[in-house]
Amino acid sequence: MRIVIALGGNALLRRGEPPTAANQRRNVRIAAAALAPIACRHDLVISHGNGPQVGLLALQGAACRPDEPYPLDILDAETEGMIGYLIEQELGNLLPDRRCATLLTQIEVDPNDPAFGHPDKPIGPVYSEIEAQKVAQERGWSIARDGAHFRRVVPSPRPQRIFELSVIELLVSQGVVVICAGGGGIPVVSREDGSLIGVEAVIDKDLASALLARELKADTLMLLTDVDAVYRDWGTPHARAIRRITPQALRELDFAPGSMGPKVRAACEFVEQTGGMAGIGQLSDALVILDGKAGTVIVMDAA
């Protein structure tokens, strides 16, 4: 089978955990152990989130040159390389006979996407309300509530086209585990002469992964995070895990736009357009989600 797995930012760095190199390597090592059995049996493409990491790099850049911050497209590229390196190395250590490659991935977005006028993608560390007000004033950032805390939010335009798709396809056809579209890929737009230029945004990695899975004609899309399943009535005493459901039924439920919402939307789009299977659940359950015995499985013929 051909499988695309998207690792959520919270699967690579736990909530509230300092984004140190040691913490990230430890978490990536855990992720690699969960993915290795799948890589042994299937064609595997891995994507990942970058919210904490791109936010950290933005803070570092602002501290160095506050009057000349690095644009988000360059920071997206840096996080693709950094996280991809860790995944590639740790997975390679477990599977020395399996070739792995990290590929920086440019993804086209529409310069007229309404998201540019309504930033809602959380990145970076969490702040208290007072801290959030301070950094918003000092740096001119948009800030929004993220659970009990606040985070910086940036535009998140919808992914349209993956420029390195043919290279990814070539590598997968040769048995290479490919790590690509990290952090949703590097957002770029086409200029009038056909050349590309990066834009100030962070693409949602779940929507980018769904596009990647569709274009690669994958059999399965797995969106792995730190929650064991999709829940009805999340955060209430009536919360109940959804184990198997059709995309049509799943779309009728409400989910938080900043957390489970994009995963549900991405999973539904993949299943509806390909007839394949999508799974949402926690990283440690990756293999049993694939077997339909854990997480939430979205398929067209669910009871």
Rank of each mutant, 00 (worst) to 15 (best):
G49M: 02
L56V: 13
E68V: 13
A33T: 10
A58L: 15
A36I: 06
Q53F: 08
C40Q: 15
G51L: 08
A39G: 01
P52A: 03
D43G: 10
C64W: 15
C40M: 15
P69T: 11
P52C: 01
L35K: 06
C40I: 12
I38W: 04
H48E: 03
E68D: 10
G51A: 10
I46Q: 03
E68T: 14
A34I: 12
V54P: 00
R41Q: 15
N50I: 12
G55Y: 11
A39Q: 04
E68Q: 15
G55F: 09
L59R: 15
G61E: 00
Q60T: 13
G49A: 00
V54W: 05
R65M: 14
S47M: 05
L59E: 12
Q53I: 12
A36S: 07
E68R: 15
A34Y: 07
A58V: 07
P69C: 08
A36M: 01
A62D: 13
P52T: 04
V45H: 09
V54S: 00
N50S: 07
L56Y: 13
V45E: 04
A34K: 11
L57M: 06
A32S: 14
Q53K: 08
A62N: 07
A34M: 11
Q60H: 10
I46T: 05
A33Y: 02
I38M: 14
A58N: 10
G61P: 00
D43C: 01
C64F: 12
H42W: 04
A63D: 12
G61A: 05
Q60E: 10
L35D: 02
A58Y: 02
A34W: 02
G51Y: 02
L44H: 08
L56Q: 12
S47L: 06
V45M: 03
R41D: 10
L56W: 14
A33H: 11
A63Y: 08
P69I: 09
G51D: 14
